[in-house]
């Protein structure tokens, strides 16, 4: 009995390390908003260079979990995070951690495209500039170009870098925001329903982009769309009422989920 358990544990560890290294890990994560609990003991690993999708009905805590990963919840009055969240093994809520560095390493793309009301160039150059990543103008130009290229936006905007970023279409704006996040060379990119404000064509482009970005970045994406989760992610985590219902490889989650709630949700019976 005892032997079997140990063997199972060993096998599990082995298989995890086989799949991918763990980039971020949530251990027993709880979140309270002004005393009201929003997350209950979530344990979730985010594997490196994969897309992890967080799904679940509205108010299930998936965005809350996402925002805990780079401490964006700090900006919300009355929000308290418990448990442990690690990035490469370091606790991100450790008082010694530098939140500016953390947010540079764990970038974020928001639900509504939110470019700064400045030029396209300035939008992308802002991050490298405040972090002092580029040593001179030509390096900065290079970063801007490569970031826009990685965000699949360069060809569309290269002739109008000085035009305001807010003048782009919704899908372009969102890719600009992705380029802005990429420009500071993050290791993890968090995306909070990045396509919910976009039309289907723009959505397809952003999804394609997410798939490409996986090669270099670890991505966590919150989405309302089952199809999107199925299309872009390798791993899926299902949240419900503040609890992590289950998580696993995306193919398995969508074909043979363990939990009935997951099955009901992905088949559209609630949510």
């Amino acid at each position: 009995m005892n032997m079997l358990t140990d063997a199972a544990v060993e096998q599990k560890l082995h298989s995890t390390s086989n799949e991918a290294a763990i980039k971020m890990r949530g251990k027993d994560v709880t979140v309270h908003y002004n005393g009201k609990q929003a997350l209950f003991g979530v344990n979730l690993d985010v594997p490196e260079q994969q897309v992890t999708a967080l799904i679940g009905p509205s108010g299930c805590g998936k965005s809350t979990f996402l925002r805990s990963l780079n401490r964006m919840n700090d900006t919300i009055e009355g929000c308290r995070v418990g448990g442990e969240i690690t990035l490469d093994g370091d606790d991100v809520y450790d008082p010694r951690i530098d939140v500016v560095e953390l947010r540079a390493r764990v970038g974020m793309v928001f639900q509504k495209p939110n470019p700064f009301p400045k030029s396209i160039y300035e939008n992308v150059a802002y991050g490298p500039r405040i972090h002092g990543i580029a040593r001179n103008k030509s390096e900065l130009d290079q970063i801007v170009e490569s970031s826009l290229e990685k965000a699949a936006l360069w060809s569309e905007v290269k002739d109008r870098l000085n035009e305001p970023g807010t003048g782009l279409s919704g899908g372009q704006q969102q890719r600009l925001c992705i380029a802005r996040a990429i420009a500071v060379s993050p290791e993890v990119i968090l995306m909070d329903e990045p396509c919910s404000a976009l039309d289907p064509i723009a959505t397809a482009k952003v999804e394609e982009l997410i798939d490409e970005l996986r090669e270099n970045y670890t991505i966590v994406i919150v989405t309302h769309s089952m199809q999107q989760a199925a299309r872009v992610s390798q791993r899926t985590a299902m949240f419900h009422l503040g609890y992590l219902v289950e998580e696993g490889a995306t193919d398995k989650m969508f074909t043979n989920p363990d939990d009935k709630r997951t099955q009901d949700y992905i088949t559209g019976r609630f949510g």
Partner: peptide, 14 residues
């Protein structure tokens, strides 16, 4: 709007 604040904080602005 708070989205501007979040955009700045989200790329590590202090």
């Amino acid at each position: 709007p708070s989205s501007i604040r979040e955009a700045a904080l989200g790329i590590g602005a202090s």
